[in-house]
Amino acid sequence: HMTFVALYDYVASGETDLSFKKGERLQIVNNTEGDWWLAHSLTTGRTGYIPSNYVAPSD
């Protein structure tokens, strides 16, 4: 899985979304859904959809 880092805080707007904090590391499970990607937080262990423009590839 690709690892990304959150650029901003995001508060989930629905049950399927994943809240995260700036700097949180996320594994992308599925990024074929356009602007919303299914991600797994390496910080909280939770999985949900995130806005793709809130994250950047982590080196």
Rank of each mutant, 00 (worst) to 15 (best):
I50T: 01
T47V: 11
L26C: 01
S41A: 03
E33F: 13
D9A: 05
A12H: 04
H1D: 12
S52G: 07
D9S: 07
G48T: 01
T43W: 10
G14P: 03
G23R: 02
V29E: 07
D17L: 10
F4H: 06
K21Y: 08
H1P: 13
N31S: 13
L26H: 00
L26R: 00
P51A: 03
Y10D: 00
T16K: 13
S58E: 15
W37D: 01
Y8W: 13
Q27Y: 15
R25L: 15
P57F: 09
H1F: 14
P57C: 07
I50A: 02
K22S: 07
E15F: 09
A6I: 02
R46E: 09
F4N: 01
W37M: 05
Y10K: 02
V5E: 06
V29C: 13
S19M: 06
H40P: 00
V5H: 05
G45T: 03
R25A: 08
A39I: 04
G48H: 02
R25G: 04
A56H: 08
V55M: 06
D17E: 15
P51R: 05
S13I: 14
Y8E: 08
A39S: 03
T44K: 02
L38M: 08
D9M: 02
S52K: 14
T43R: 10
H1K: 11
S41C: 04
W36A: 04
K21L: 11
Y8F: 12
D17Q: 15
A6Q: 00
E15I: 10
G23S: 04
L42M: 10
G23L: 03
L7P: 02
A12W: 02
T16N: 14
K22M: 08
L42I: 09
Y49Q: 05
L26N: 00
R46Q: 11
F4W: 13
G34N: 12
G14S: 14
A39C: 06
A12Q: 06
G14I: 09
L18H: 02
V11P: 05
Y49S: 04
E33P: 10
A12K: 05
N30L: 11
P51V: 01
S13Q: 15
A56C: 09
V5F: 08
N30F: 10
A6R: 00
F20C: 04
S41F: 01
A6N: 01
Y54D: 01
G34Q: 13
P51H: 06
T3M: 13
A39M: 10
I50S: 00
S19Y: 04
G48S: 01
E15D: 14
G14W: 08
N53H: 13
A39T: 02
G34P: 15
E15H: 12
Q27G: 05
A12E: 04
K21F: 10
K22E: 06
T44D: 04
G45Y: 06
F4I: 04
A56Y: 10
R46I: 07
W37H: 02
A56S: 10
G34F: 09
S41N: 10
W36F: 08
L38T: 03
G23W: 05
A39G: 05
L38C: 08
D35I: 11
F20Y: 01
P57A: 11
S13V: 15
G23Y: 05
Y49P: 01
Y8Q: 09
S58K: 08
L18K: 01
S13N: 11
G48A: 04
W36S: 05
S13W: 08
I50Y: 00
K22I: 07
Y54R: 06
G23N: 05
L42N: 05
D9T: 07
K21Q: 11
E15T: 13
E15P: 15
F20D: 00
L26I: 07
Y8C: 11
A6E: 00
N30C: 11
I28F: 03
Y54C: 07
S52W: 09
H40N: 07
R46K: 13
T44I: 02
E33L: 14
S13R: 14
A12M: 04
S19K: 03
Y8K: 08
R25T: 12
V5M: 07
N31P: 12
A39W: 01
W37P: 02
T43K: 11
E15Q: 11
W37G: 00
Y54E: 01
S52R: 12
T3D: 08
M2A: 11
T43Q: 10
L38S: 02
W37F: 06
M2D: 10
I50D: 01
T44M: 03
L18M: 15
T43H: 11
D59N: 13
Y54K: 05
T43Y: 08
A56V: 14
T44L: 04
T47A: 07
V29M: 15
D9P: 04
S58D: 14
M2V: 12
E15K: 12
G23C: 05
H1S: 13
A56D: 06
K21M: 11
A6F: 01
L42Q: 06
K22Q: 08
W36Y: 09
S58C: 14
Q27A: 11
T44E: 03
V5G: 01
A6M: 06
V11F: 09
G14Y: 10
D35C: 11
G45D: 06
D35N: 12
F4G: 03
N30T: 09
R25Q: 11
V5Q: 05
E33S: 14
Y10M: 03
E15N: 11
T16L: 14
Q27C: 15
I28H: 01
D9V: 02
N53A: 14
S41R: 02
M2K: 12
F4Y: 15
S41K: 02
P51Y: 05
I50G: 00
L7S: 03
N53M: 10
I50K: 00
G14H: 13
S13Y: 10
P57Y: 08
E33M: 14
T32S: 13
P51C: 06
W37C: 04
H1I: 12
V11H: 11
N53C: 12
S19N: 05
A6K: 00
T3A: 07
T44C: 03
E15A: 15
Y8M: 10
S13P: 07
H1T: 12
L26F: 15
T47S: 11
S19R: 04
D35W: 11
N31Q: 14
A39H: 00
D35M: 12
D9W: 02
S41E: 02
W36C: 07
F20R: 00
D35Q: 12
T3R: 06
S19W: 03
D9H: 04
N31E: 11
H1Q: 13
A39E: 00
